[in-house]
Design a protein around this nucleic acid. Structure first.
Lengths: 290, 290
DNA sequence: GCAATTACACGCGTTTTCGCATGTCCGCGT
DNA sequence: ACGCGGACATGCGAAAACGCGTGTAATTGC
């Protein structure tokens, strides 16, 4: 009736991963090892933790119980790791940052490069994604986010305000300018199935031509001349083949923040990055507002 | 920067055990293994967790940090184990009970024997000690305690009230009866450096002859005729060579309880023991009160 | 209806981990 | 001063854990 802590973690990963292979991937192990550990855990507890079904391992009630407790232990290790990281005064070793794909591509590359040059002993991992990584679970140490506030349990600094506006190809822009009453084709976000508010009333006719769930795709569609897209000023200005059109005057858009968990906010590497990022972004403010 | 959960546990045990050997004993490992795990933990974290001094391993600030978080994880595993145990509906496997030394010796032996006969598949461990074992940390599953209430987070059932009284050898008892004014020598608890309250006023002269921190020793001294001792009725009555003396009339004494953690209270083995214990103790009540 | 895929069990050879024996350093008491 | 015991380091052989390859059953896709 004595269970290894690592075996508890394995049980948790198997419940979470829903298959030996999934758990093994999360643990960085071969799936046979996961199977063996589960067998050992069940033997030492004398309780079945999983039902072996044809399509995989299905946790029993007891298995879920173990997994839930292990999850709390994992939260504890996350807290510990953050605490250790927050104490770390060195400018060596790994640092993971995350930012929206397009912000990295069009704005942040220089400051990332500058940081790597200045601190060659830091091995910087950049996770360019639009998903919000969980800083509590240490998926990243520092995040640059577009949002209205830094969020709970996170510490943040507002880097700049920004605005959005409407963009299209020069040809389409000219056509609309020539005939403001023609119907304007919009390319919009999938979950925002409407023409943007506050469009200039000189352009009375609109329709939604297509929707995407990804800004890269929206921009590509706009660059292909398929319609007008609303996007942050920095993005439209940095995109070849697009010009700003006056249909939608510059609108408020969520601010850009740099955020980190409170525990790691003061870590040397996190501070060093921030101290390079903040003045850099201050110098770039003109890109973001009209 | 990835630390095995078992290594965290090892760090905690080393901080707690204060030497490789102490930690190894707690973990059931060889001390070399502990040393290796600590070295591995430090390597993977890149932080010194212990200072190697000539007289052993001294935890650094970071080591204490790790140990504190591991302690919280341990509490979590304890909770889990109790939960699993509470779900256990079998009457097989280990069951650990604890009770005061003298209560086992003079009262409980028959019911313990009865239980072992009735449930031969349960391997019962009895921890006869006056220390209060920590039921939260699963040092025992069920405890029989002499106290005024079951205590926080524990569930309990009052088995019987009891009283204390004064006991001495028959010779000493006669001598005092012959001359109530002679000075009565008392043998008392070390931390209770006073003659018991509520002594019969017919015996006006008292002095404390000696103190002990252990009831077995007090009884032995009384049996050797060194003086009068206050003890629970059941104990004095069951002790060869002692008779009750009327100096101290029967006094209230803390009740006897059976207690267990709430999580394991309803476990099959715990219930089975309780269901044997409760009627047994009911039958023994006359032993405990005048 | 048959190939491809997913998910797992099993056996074998390798790597890692572990326990034991030995050696060193140091403080302590005689 | 010298022996003794506690606490740790080190090297070696044994044991445990692991990864890989193969085999099987059920499901999916064409």
């Amino acid at each position: 009736m004595k269970l290894s802590w690592d075996d508890m973690r394995t049980v948790m990963c198997l419940v979470r991963g829903e298959s030996l292979a999934g758990a093994a991937a999360e643990l960085g192990l071969n799936y046979t090892t996961v199977a063996r550990r589960i067998a050992r855990a069940e033997a030492s507890l004398g309780v079945a933790l999983f039902d072996r079904l044809t399509d995989g391992y299905q946790p029993t009630e007891a298995g879920v119980l173990v997994a839930n407790h292990a999850a709390k232990m994992e939260a504890q290790t996350d807290t510990l790791m953050r605490a250790l990281q927050g104490r770390d005064a060195t400018l060596r070793g790994p640092l993971t940052i995350t930012a929206p794909q397009l912000l990295i591509a069009h704005v942040l590359t220089p400051v990332i490069d500058q940081f790597c040059m200045a601190y060659p002993d830091v091995d910087l991992h950049v996770r360019a994604t639009n998903d919000l990584l969980d800083l509590n679970r240490r998926e990243a140490d520092l995040a640059i986010r577009i949002s209205r506030d830094p969020g709970d349990s996170l510490k943040g600094l507002r880097l700049t305000a920004q605005q959005s506006a409407s963009f299209a190809t020069p040809a389409l822009a000219r056509a609309i300018a020539d005939d403001p009453t023609r119907s304007v084709d919009w390319i919009v976000y999938a979950d925002y199935m409407a023409v943007p508010k506050n469009v200039d009333p000189s352009y009375p006719n609109h329709r939604i031509r297509m929707t995407f769930d990804d800004m890269v795709a929206i921009r590509a569609a706009a660059q292909a001349g398929l319609g007008v897209a609303r996007m942050p000023l920095f993005l439209g200005r940095a995109s070849d083949g697009l010009v700003q059109v006056p249909i939608l005057p510059p609108q408020p858009y969520p601010d850009i923040w740099v955020v980190a968990h409170r525990d790691v906010w003061a870590a040397a590497k996190v501070m060093a990055f921030r101290e390079m990022l903040v003045p850099f972004m201050r110098g770039q403010r003109a890109q973001f507002i009209a």
